[in-house]
Design a protein around this nucleic acid. Structure first.
Lengths: 315, 315
DNA sequence: TTGTAAGCGTTATCAA
DNA sequence: TTGATAACGCTTACAA
């Protein structure tokens, strides 16, 4: 294993100079810097993360705390994890996936927290280590999220553009900011177009909404599009329409939200508002690392635009 | 932060003695041991993993290498990760999630590898660090998997027991050990019962098998059950049956395999062969840590029994 | 059985 | 601008 000393010897400088070239390159002569770079290259030197961690009192670990039941939730988190991991690895950080129960074990340098419920904001403010939330919140905490309002807008605008006459929003029956934002986007576009919003809310289960739509089928005229807050809901709606022999996408349209796995499994495949979850994961990681390296400073929010993916459930 | 020294001072012994109590408790007097334990408790001492890692030349990181396209694959991996993470955390290890591309960056103490294709066995044997495979293999590498053959057997036996007359196995068109094993389980039970195996193979996409079943619908007599190699296939089969107006579960049955997310999203929910993926993840981690701590010794295989979950698609 | 000394690879501090 | 020294918290090797 190549160490600082090896590089220092090869470059005929002291270990400190090599360390400086790595950490404070501005405090070293250009000349010396080149020498050291060459030595590092020829020896294939990589700093020892553990030694660094020890002296800096870091763990090089960040924890991802998921406050929802992961196994029952959309395969959302796998994408998030992929994104987080990629960035962390570039910075020689590793990940620990924790749930509420195992939260206390072991130390770390910071947290990414997701699946926040309202009551969680109680204890979260007690945290001393840097953290970043995945998912918008109204308490001023740093977060990364998709632009949920825009998501609602995009879907609604597209539905209008495609000529659907009745636009029904199907939301998740949950008092969460992301849900309010998506609804708000829908409502805004409806009003801009002189249309009256019509909203159904349901728990986020495909079967429940499927039953609801079936039971109320007579209320839905032809040329209706269901703009839903999740692909899970969209899947159930789609199944209800098929069961009721409504034709998709001609008589009835369905627009999902998220584009994580379920949209692909649906048949026909869902038109949906895609969130780039993996990208958001990477941004969470970046934000957190910045926070760790800058004295836990407030980072603000980071919101990225969702995209419309047109597939088989809209005309 | 409490250190060895603090504990040593409190217990009126040297730092070495404390270290010994932790790492070689047999080499310390019972008396002294108790003193040290008390001091550790009263000071809430936790060894610094980084310092340990440094002196032992460890990274305290293990990498999970996923050789499949994670985003398109079943939400299988989230469960695996949960299981792995739990065990790793108990042992102060952290995880890095890597794909083929990012494989080289950074060091670690060992790998858990999954999604192995045949060609991967070429380069895997070159690995010098300890590794454990998730998924059975025929090359003698240590692995953890569900008992796939038993999975095939369980499903088939249950189908016979429930009185289905025609048992068709729907496999994944892939030359992988897990697939062979599941088929073998099916075939064995069929032969034991004097029945003739009938096998269909398809790529693991719900839509493809759905089309296939629909196109060949006339070939499937009533009282047929489809025993499938994945929930994804089962979902497609179920949809085809419904589209063809076959009644589930009376005239036609469907049995899935895996029980990860999709079985719950299906309607009716799938009867399926459940794999305890999270548990398997934990076992992978345990096996790997053992390997790391025991000079990379061969660990053999670890196979756990799948379970039948009866839901709406069988009578 | 216990303690002392040295060192793991790095960085901050201070002196040159 | 560069280098010597001490320190981070722990463990191995050796001595008492």
């Amino acid at each position: 294993m190549t160490t600082l000393k090896d590089v220092a010897d090869q470059a005929h400088v002291s270990r400190m100079t090599v360390s400086r070239v790595i950490n404070h390159p501005d405090k070293v002569t250009e000349e010396v810097k080149q020498l050291v770079y060459q030595a590092m290259q020829s020896l294939d030197y990589h700093p020892n993360a553990m030694a660094r961690a020890l002296v800096n009192n870091r763990t090089q670990i960040i924890k991802l705390l998921v406050l929802e039941e992961m196994t029952t939730v959309e395969p959302y988190y796998m994408n998030l994890l992929t994104g987080i991991s990629k960035v962390l690895e570039e910075h020689q950080y590793a990940l620990q996936l924790v749930t509420e129960n195992s939260f206390e074990i072991g130390t770390c340098d910071g947290y990414i927290i997701t699946g926040m419920r309202d009551e969680d904001y109680q204890w979260i403010k007690e945290l001393t280590l840097p953290f970043v939330l995945f998912g918008e919140n109204r308490y001023g905490y740093d977060f990364v999220d998709s632009d949920n309002k825009m998501g609602g807008q995009i879907g609604t605008r597209y539905a209008i553009q495609r000529g659907y006459k009745h636009l029904i929003y199907v939301g998740i029956d949950l008092a969460e900011p992301f849900e309010y934002s998506r609804e708000a986007g829908y409502i805004q576009v409806m009003q801009e177009n002189g249309l009256e919003p019509q909203i159904i809310r349901s728990v986020n289960h495909s079967t429940q909404i499927q039953n609801y739509i079936s039971e109320h089928w007579s209320e839905f005229e032809e040329n209706t599009v269901f703009i839903s807050a999740s692909d899970r809901l969209a899947l159930g709606i789609e199944r209800a329409i098929i069961a009721q022999k409504g034709s998709i996408p001609e008589q009835y349209g369905v627009i999902g939200h998220d584009s994580v796995f379920l949209d692909q499994v649906a048949f026909p495949k869902l038109t949906t508002i895609k969130q780039e979850v993996s990208k958001m994961g990477g941004l969470c990681a970046k934000m957190l690392l910045d926070k760790i390296n800058n004295g836990n400073q407030l980072q603000g929010k980071c919101v990225i635009e969702p995209q419309l993916v047109v597939r088989g459930t809209t005309k």
